[in-house]
Design a protein around this nucleic acid. Structure first.
Lengths: 273, 273
DNA sequence: AGTCTTTCAAATGTCAGACGTTTACGCGAT
DNA sequence: ATCGCGTAAACGTCTGACATTTGAAAGACT
């Protein structure tokens, strides 16, 4: 008989048979992904599913909870109620990813510098694409955000909201969902990163920089838009460096920020199902 | 009495008091995010939670299922079993985000072109950063992936695995988790995108292009690494154009791909809890 | 005939208690 | 010291019942 330890890249898999609830959830999930259960369609009633799978209703309910947490299905009560396959909503998906990301950041060792670096790299691409692809609606959105940020009496919360709207609108104008989604998710956790330097911001200067980016995008000048964006970023980097110099503890793992203040933007967007 | 319709931006919130299970899940989730329940810590036993919240055990279990689907907690059976706050694993988080993304792509109208565009934009940044920051371990990983792809007898599956490993290793070498995570997620759905043109690939040429990128990264030459990457991308774009020309139906919404073949990479990585 | 009210039934939400299954840990025998 | 076994703790599942919500049909009134 051969030895139990073979030199091949073999590693014993954690077998532990999945629970009934998990298996049912998997089957339903696959059916949904396979297209057998189109969005909006209704699953059989719980007692019927229980009958079909030969399990108790409690088990079926646990399976449904697994799917509903993943936003695959939604349950409603009442006579015409039931469990329905959810029609995906981009905002909800972005919020969900933002949730996952912030959870990860919160327990990891990711620093503000890392978030900023990624944000700048991806958004630079978005800015360039936005200059090529923006339509009138995009321009209106961006313009509204810039105007909103000009209010001299603005407070921290409102400023961050307009800033968020500005950058998200640009990413939307790039017309690439695969870029827009992670970017939106990153922006959603950015309020945490910006509160650190908020007191140092010259709001008028920020508004002017935003305006310059908007102008270049409106003129469909990708190169200039990228340059304007770079100037904006350079200004922020300068502030961060200043903050870092005065208070070296500024570049901390995000976990401590999360612990201090409860998510301002995500609180509104977080799924509650 | 004022009319029910006011001109202000008011919109009635969906009130419908959340279910007990949802509320419990929210409370526990907040406690975890707030840091009161650190990773690895153990929740009270189900019957204790039921007692504390004054609900039945079934309700507590449904709440736990909601959290476990979000990978926030994990339950184990046995004497020393219980429900524990999960220690986030980057690979698992990436797989989870990849899951969410592909689900979204599957039900949306996202096209292969969009995925490729985003992938190329972000990875270009990773390649440049990798040239600056790679350590010996990164180089070894990348080298191993390149060598693995040289096997002339390689089949489609093995090739895609090594290709995936190559690109993920580069993103890892960029030493920015915020870039690495979405990039890995995108790469995880890439097998779907690559199978379309696989039959047209000149595997030897691909290996040479990978080698050129590796060499530049090893030489810490960011500019050359980016150029080599651009050449690689240009070659792939050429193939895609060719495929698009021969079979215009190639640039289809990803949904149809998902429907046809069951996720090759995700099948192994998909959460089963 | 049309509208309002009442009743009803279907479906999810929750409860209570019980039993099955898994698994770490300690105890005793070898 | 090691092996085997029992035990208890915890999750997994079952059963059956009741509570709550809500659309829709049946009925009553104008």
């Amino acid at each position: 008989m051969p030895s139990a330890q073979e030199p091949t890249g073999f590693r014993p898999r954690r077998l532990s048979r999945a629970s009934a609830a998990t298996q049912i959830a998997d089957q339903v999930r696959d059916a949904i992904l396979r297209g057998e259960l189109p969005a909006g369609s209704r699953l059989p009633a719980e007692h019927e599913l229980a009958e079909q799978f030969v399990v108790s209703r409690a088990t079926v309910r646990e399976a449904i909870k697994l799917l509903s947490a993943a936003r695959l299905v939604e349950s409603t009560r009442g006579a015409a109620g039931g469990t329905f396959v959810v029609v995906p909503d981009p905002a909800a998906v972005a919020a969900s990813i933002g949730d996952t990301l912030s959870l990860w950041f919160a327990s990891g060792s990711t620093s503000l510098a890392e978030v900023s670096e990624a944000r700048e790299a991806i958004e630079r691409v978005c800015v360039r694409l936005a200059a090529q692809r923006r339509d009138e609606e995009d321009l209106a959105d961006i313009r509204r955000a810039v105007e909103g940020g000009r209010d001299p009496e603005i407070d921290s919360d409102a400023f961050l909201r307009h800033d968020l709207e500005f950058h998200i609108a640009i990413c939307r104008a790039a017309k690439n969902q695969v870029l827009e989604l992670p970017m939106t998710a990153i922006h959603l956790i950015r309020p945490w990163t910006n509160t650190v330097v908020f007191e140092l911001l010259d709001l008028g200067q920020i508004a002017d920089q935003h305006q310059a980016i908007l102008d270049a995008i409106e003129a469909a000048d990708g190169d200039e838009a990228e340059r304007a964006f770079d100037r904006h970023i350079a200004y922020l980097a300068e502030l961060r460096a200043e903050a870092l110099h005065e208070r070296p503890e500024t570049d901390v793992p995000i976990a401590s920020l999360v612990a201090q203040q409860a998510h301002p933007a995500l609180a509104r967007l977080r799924p509650r199902g």
